[in-house]
């Protein structure tokens, strides 16, 4: 993936300064400054981009993750998993074992594809329902989280930089990634929504 699309610094420029703004600012500094407003603006633009890039790259999984994670156990029946996800309004949960180690992730897509939706998304399930008579939860009844989950889970370490997390979400086409410690124990989770907030914040902060 190209860096320009990853980095807000790539797209969003700094607030535009006019020569007049710089000229007025230079007037407030006593003494002759032997730089033109134009040169200053060039320096400012580049410095702004570099600072953005640095601040962006310094974000790590540990700082971005949500710590309160709704997780299920492998033996949790799928209807309970679905209920929990529905209640919380989330589209996926990590599956952890008795020692809080992440065994997998179970998401809407896992449900949908196991229910016969070819592309694993909701509309393909709708299409399936419309083509067949009656609807189709039958194949996953009686199953447990461990049967449906995607495993092994894609996880990141707490010090994984934002850049890598974005890359991972994009290339693995996932919407969330659990953050685990050295022993694979669940510390938190990062969702696309979390990242949207962070990146949005970065965009407006400047």
């Amino acid at each position: 993936m190209n860096e320009e699309t990853l980095t807000p610094a790539g797209g969003a420029g700094p607030p535009e300064l006019g020569d007049e703004d710089i000229y007025e600012a230079m007037k407030e500094i006593p003494g002759y400054l032997d730089i033109t407003p134009g040169s200053f603006r060039e320096v400012y633009r580049l410095a702004y981009r570099l600072a953005r890039k640095r601040l962006f790259a310094e974000q790590t999984a540990a700082r971005l993750m949500t710590r309160e994670v709704i997780a299920v156990r492998p033996e949790t029946p799928v209807e309970e998993v679905a209920e929990a996800m529905g209640r919380a309004g989330i589209s996926g949960v990590p599956v952890v074992d008795g020692e809080n180690r992440v065994a997998g992730v179970i998401s809407e897509r896992d449900f949908l594809s196991r229910m016969g939706a070819r592309e694993g998304n909701f509309m393909s399930l709708v299409a399936l329902c419309l083509r067949t008579r009656g609807c189709v939860a039958v194949p996953i009844k009686e199953k447990r989280a461990g049967d449906l989950m995607s495993s092994p889970a894609v996880t990141v370490a707490p010090d994984t930089p934002l850049r890598d997390i974005l890359h991972l979400l994009e290339t693995r086409r996932i919407n969330r990634v659990p953050v685990t410690d050295g022993q694979g124990r669940l510390m938190g989770i990062i969702t696309r929504g979390d990242l949207l907030r962070t990146l949005g914040g970065a965009l407006w902060a400047g």
């Binding site: 020569d19 000229y23 230079m26 007037k27 006593p30 003494g31 002759y32 400054l33 032997d34 730089i35 033109t36 407003p37 134009g38 040169s39 603006r41």
Partner: peptide, 17 residues
């Protein structure tokens, strides 16, 4: 040219220089 001349200095600055 693309930019403008930097500002001049006040009389004090002239004197000190």
């Amino acid at each position: 040219g693309t930019s403008i001349s930097p500002p001049g200095v006040d009389p004090g600055e002239m004197l000190f220089s």
